[in-house]
Nucleic acid binder design. Structure first.
Lengths: 237, 237
DNA sequence: GATTCTCATTGATCTGAGTCAAAGACTGGA
DNA sequence: TCCAGTCTTTGACTCAGATCAATGAGAATC
């Protein structure tokens, strides 16, 4: 998949024409606040596979993804990797009170972010209850997703894991791009494996099995959910 | 373990003498705000194994644990259970923007909570950036813990899981009660299994193995970390 | 269009943790 | 003190998913 997964326009540098403005943190700001906020932000692009920030880096910035997809992951000392989330446009990343990032973030395909230095951002947010509440909302949402993912990692079979991932990923894309059962998968099989707590071989076999069972069709760069009802059933129970 | 795990005094009903005041959400309030806040709260006790709130209940309240231990868990339709966290005094539970709770909370042994109705709490917090920031801080902290737990569930062996759990639980108790390598475990083996994504038999066998290896000693109602360096090594790598 | 790479798939085999079954060990109550 | 109930430990066996080892299929380079 060479083309950007989610096409987002940003000709200018302003917030006014930002594709992500309507549903990200900034949605909580009025025009006046936004103008000030704009001064704190900087657009930065990364090439495919570049690291936006790494585990143990000083956490000096927050990021708002504008375009592309990122993976967030933690590494164990011996190299085992757990992907803790995939990031889509509009998602806010890097919120932390810690001195250093607890995980790494890198680009899956080319990526553009809106970057904020932590300190000025903090000062700006300090007397903006709207923004603080919005950030709370986002943190709590993420926490809910994290808990769902714990259930998946701790208590589900390989087949359930893969089906849950596909349905969940589709639903996130539907939010951004509208309904479709074609599910682009910009991440590698290894990424999916590290997200689901499986090996690449098991992911591959499970894809094949789901295709054999008529639940999905494997396409270059993604899958098509042929029988989304059955996929959803696997994801639910 | 019959006695309360963490003894906390609360003779009166006020916040002033609340054992948890110094390190919970309320730490962010000044005396004046606290007086108002006090009016919103109500102390409620639960007997062992009583449910404080259940998955799919309307989320009408937040809770601040004052005394005892709770487990938070999610159930799959077929009864599989994943414990997503254990709650200790000072922890804030139930924060959500959703209409309904995404998980259940029940008492492990007798429990006392400080309960707030969601709506008045929200109104109160609305213009208190200090409180909002504190809540953010707590949410982000929890998110970090959740991500660590994902690594554990997805990428660690049974032995690493159990060692990590014991070290982590000890560290949380040390925060509350001061240093000790005696680790009381008020939760059952089944609880530990459902927290670590294992079966009760595997947990039991792993405890036995750690004891055989001289890393822990199994006591009634808990364990003693005999060789905490080796336990920590298992937990780290 | 041949040559590498990298990534995905498939097959054969192994193993860590699950399952099933039984025996201990506590706990609370009569 | 005995009994019933619950929780924990242990043993024997199984199996889902990991590991090891090719093979296949695109994409990138020359």
């Amino acid at each position: 998949m060479k083309t950007s997964l989610v096409a987002v326009d940003f000709h200018g540098q302003g917030c006014a024409d930002c594709a992500v403005r309507g549903f990200s943190v900034c949605a909580s700001l009025d025009q006046f606040e936004m103008r000030e906020f704009e001064q704190l932000s900087r657009r930065v692009s990364f090439a495919s596979c570049e690291t936006v920030f790494a585990q143990e880096d000083r956490s000096s910035c927050f990021y708002n993804l504008l375009d592309g997809v990122m993976r967030l992951y933690k590494l164990l000392p011996d190299g085992r990797r757990q992907i803790v989330g995939f990031v889509l446009p509009g998602d806010f990343v890097g919120m932390t009170t810690e001195e250093r990032h607890g995980f790494s973030a890198d680009a899956i395909g080319p990526v553009t972010v809106c970057q904020f230095a932590k300190l000025p951002f903090g000062r700006f947010a300090d007397d903006k209850p709207n923004l603080l509440r919005r950030m709370n909302e986002l943190a709590v949402q993420e926490l809910n997703q994290a808990r769902d993912h714990m259930v998946l990692l701790g208590r589900r079979s390989a087949e359930e894991k893969v089906a849950t991932f596909l349905v969940g990923w589709r639903d996130r894309l539907v939010e951004l791009r509208g309904p479709s059962n074609i599910v682009p998968l910009p991440m590698s099989r290894q990424d999916i494996a590290d997200y689901l707590g499986l090996t690449i071989e098991t992911v591959s076999r499970t894809f094949t099995k789901l295709e054999r069972d008529g639940i999905i069709a494997i396409l270059p760069g993604g899958v098509s959910l042929r029988d989304s009802a059955r996929a959803e059933a696997l994801a639910a129970a």
